[in-house]
Nucleic acid binder design. Structure first.
Lengths: 112, 112
DNA sequence: CTATCGTAGTACATCTGTCGTAGTAAATGT
DNA sequence: ACATTTACTACGACAGATGTACTACGATAG
């Protein structure tokens, strides 16, 4: 079975998370489920990877956290929302992706 | 200026090198120049990255080294050739790339 | 005649993001 | 009642990329 290269994803975990936060604020567990479903089960982010991405991005000012009670269960959770800087970072990464893809595909057969 | 994500390339430096070795045996300096020209100057591999990739891949049995004198200058250089295992590894990475690309593009706007 | 540039590397320490393992704790399912 | 799902946190290990620096030789420029 072929698996997603975690060494590629390494550069885009943050981007994937930001993509989801762009739609609405969310929290760890939900993000991880959304990544799984959106990728058709092809990629499952590790918890540790996810939560360390959160703290890194908060430190970098790309996201902000806030505590909130779940509307259904009433449990408090740590939510994250994307910042203006996060949006810029995300857009930049999208541009970067195009360039990176172009380059990689010159070295991978069956493409372009 | 947008730059190639070294965290994506990280997963494909080996593949890029193997792609070039698939055509003919080569050595460090030449490989680095070929990567630069083939990528239209968009990606320049660092020396240390390149040579550590060589030793890693030799250890893994993907390439074999041999000493040879340059036909022009007569200087001895360390050449590398790809092995059967290296070819299989390369082909696998090409498949993996397609899958990875598919997933990433679900999270990057302006694609698919 | 000397300095810099291109060629062809090697050595070593550091950084970053991911991963493995483990543990907590409340709520929900069976 | 016990297992699973939800929702995290802590900590250490690892691998690949990077920075810095150094060697050595020949060609070329000033």
């Amino acid at each position: 079975m072929i698996e997603i290269s975690s060494d590629v994803i390494r550069g885009y975990n943050d981007t994937m998370i930001l993509h989801l936060l762009l739609k609405q604020p969310s929290y760890g567990y939900e993000i991880s489920k959304q990544i799984k479903t959106l990728s058709d089960g092809k990629y499952v982010i590790k918890e540790t990877t996810l939560y360390s991405a959160f703290s890194r991005m908060e430190k970098n000012g790309y996201i902000e956290s806030f505590e909130s009670e779940a509307s259904d269960t009433g449990k408090k959770r740590t939510y994250y929302r994307i910042t203006e800087e996060g949006i810029r970072y995300y857009e930049n990464k999208c541009e970067e992706w195009k360039l990176t893809k172009e380059v990689v595909e010159k070295f991978v057969t069956g493409e372009r």
